[in-house]
């Protein structure tokens, strides 16, 4: 029995290496991550492994998390802002089982936050690492289907296709056409997909104190945004990027600043708006209760 087995929580499954992946795979992913950090926003191919859940359920994010995770970490997993959805619960239980790490739903307590399509409302800190699950890492894929060609466009820094697309959206409908997955320029060099986070979250990538790692399992790509790095949503001087939020207050906590989900409540057009970030909403409700 190795020393690492002794340090794991008692209910850790002894049939797996720490954090599931074998050490050679972790080394390969770790080397890729270091290069991704050194070249902010540049997509790097990696040998994505089969994971015990299907592509599209966060295999890229899980492999990144498994490669950086240590026994001292506290892991939070969110799916569209919520800690209690199937994907988030399954991934949290997976890492508790194969790595014995502490898990949490509190943003403030987490050292690693794996996310599907949101960035928490609470400002991140230098001690935190975000891991994004990415379905399609190539920001140009709807404009140029040939990957060999998109690689060349990234090498040349030629993003005119994306600018023309944005121009056409504005010319036709008066504003940019993407409410999520709106492409960003990283460190003034690479055009990057922020993963399908709402445009509302794009500004949180800019000069964040936290390290941001992106893993795409099916597409086998890893990329990163280091802390305190310029991340600018693609826009024009006379049509600046505007993050959009539903013009309502959260029905549960009353927040007028958080990103809201629209929930249909009946078949007569009834609807309500609540925070997408469940931890943030719970904190607000507690604070409100304490104040009363």
């Amino acid at each position: 029995m190795t020393a690492s087995a002794h340090m794991q929580a008692p209910d850790t499954d002894p049939g797996y290496n720490f954090a599931y992946l074998d050490e050679a795979t972790k080394r390969m992913i770790r080397r890729t991550l270091l290069k991704a950090i050194a070249i902010p926003g540049h997509q790097i191919p990696f040998g994505a492994r089969e994971m015990p859940l299907p592509y599209g359920w966060g295999t890229g994010g899980i492999q990144v998390t498994a490669s950086i995770l240590g026994p001292d970490d506290t892991l939070k997993v969110i799916d569209q802002g919520a800690d209690d959805t199937t994907n988030a619960v399954s991934i949290r239980r997976f890492f508790h089982r194969v790595a014995g790490v502490r898990t949490t739903t509190r943003t403030a307590e987490a050292t690693i936050i794996q996310t599907r399509h949101r960035i928490p409302e609470r400002p991140l800190t230098e001690g935190q690492v975000m891991v994004f699950q990415v379905p399609m890492p190539e920001p140009l894929f709807k404009l140029e289907p040939r990957l060999a060609e998109t690689r060349r466009l990234h090498a040349l820094g030629d993003y005119s296709l994306a600018q023309v697309k944005l121009y056409e959206d504005i010319a036709r409908q008066g504003e940019g056409g993407s409410s999520y997955s709106h492409p960003v320029m990283v460190n003034h060099r690479y055009l990057m997909s922020p993963s399908p986070i709402p445009g509302f979250d794009n500004p949180k990538l800019h000069m964040s104190p936290a390290l941001m790692l992106f893993g795409a399992g099916r597409e086998k790509k890893i990329y990163a945004v280091p802390p305190y790095t310029s991340v600018v949503s693609l826009d024009f001087d006379d049509h600046p990027f505007r993050p959009v939020r539903a013009p309502h207050a959260c029905a549960a906590c009353g927040s007028t600043t958080s990103y809201l989900d629209e929930i249909v409540t009946d078949d007569r057009g009834g609807r309500m708006f609540v925070c997408s970030d469940t931890d943030h909403c719970a904190e607000n409700q507690m604070a409100r209760k304490a104040a009363e």
């Binding site: 190795t2 020393a3 690492s4 340090m7 290496n17 720490f18 050490e23 972790k26 080394r27 770790r30 991550l33 270091l34 950090i37 050194a38 490669s67 950086i68 995770l69 240590g70 026994p71 230098e126 390290l211 280091p226 802390p227």
Partner: peptide
């Protein structure tokens, strides 16, 4: 390493932090 798995993980986190915060 005394513990090839966890010491390598700690080594990587040191490298990752070093690379992310030059």
């Amino acid at each position: 390493f005394t513990d090839p798995v966890l010491d390598a993980q700690a080594g990587f986190r040191a490298l990752m932090q070093a690379m992310a915060r030059p």
